[in-house]
Amino acid sequence: MDSSLSSQPEFDYLFKLLMIGDSGVGKSSLLLRFTLDSFEDLSPTIGVDFKVKMVTLGGKKLKLAIWDTAGQERFRTLTSSYYRGAQGIIMVYDVTRRETFTNLSDVWAREIDLYSTNQDCIKMLVGNKVDKESERAVTKKEGIDFAREYGCLFLECSAKTRVNVEKCFEELVLKILDTPSLCAEGSAGVKKNIFTQKPAQADASASSCC
């Protein structure tokens, strides 16, 4: 590759964000609304999907690689490796379905503890589908209390009406930019490929058993 082409990166930072939560809470709809500003009823994600979005925040050019994981139990083993190297994790629940909220602590928060390789990783709790206010089963206060207990940022939003969708990604990314260790990892000067799921630091002397 011509070094003059590679000397000027197209972005200042590359961040990997992960979306988790039960099937049907609207993870893919939120991602579609944020990246393409469109909304449609989507069928459940099979395995994992991801989209890339370029944004400018805080005077920095950012490349966001946002991974959208399947919420169904049978895909759970597939998704564990996708936690690796993520600087931000978005936990999504549906404000009209209480079980999607209780599963946050029963399932998803545990997964983060098990699989996240980044102790400074920023977590964002998102209550989706606030356009269905009349069907609400989880109060905003419960969301706030959960976020406080688990050290997450918190927002309620609606992929359908666009309310707070951009805000939830922006607040998460601004918090990442505020965290020196995450910025160092995401810096464009660091040569890495986040599209290959390999451990971030491969010690030459370590045996590659897995």
Rank of each mutant, 00 (worst) to 15 (best):
F154R: 00
K60S: 11
K191Y: 11
G47V: 08
A206P: 02
G71W: 09
F101P: 13
P44A: 03
T100P: 13
I46H: 10
G21Y: 11
Y13G: 00
A204H: 07
L104G: 08
C157Y: 04
S23I: 02
I144Y: 06
I66R: 01
D178N: 12
D106S: 15
S6N: 11
S181P: 14
F75W: 02
G189C: 02
V173C: 05
C121S: 12
S28F: 11
T96K: 01
S80A: 13
A109W: 12
E185D: 14
T196F: 08
G26C: 06
V163W: 00
G88K: 04
L62I: 13
Q197H: 13
Q72P: 08
M54F: 09
L125A: 03
T161S: 09
A65C: 14
F34T: 09
L31A: 05
Q119V: 06
S6F: 12
T96G: 03
A188L: 09
K16R: 11
Q87V: 03
K61G: 05
A159P: 12
F15M: 02
D49K: 00
M124A: 05
L18D: 03
D41W: 05
D94K: 02
V95K: 01
V126W: 07
K51F: 08
Q8G: 07
A184E: 15
K63D: 10
E111H: 08
V126G: 02
T102Q: 06
I66N: 01
K63I: 06
C168N: 07
K27L: 10
A137Y: 03
D41F: 08
D120G: 03
G127T: 00
D178M: 00
V25D: 14
K61T: 09
S28D: 11
K191A: 15
E40R: 13
I122G: 00
S181K: 05
D120S: 11
P180S: 03
R162Q: 07
C152T: 02
A204C: 07
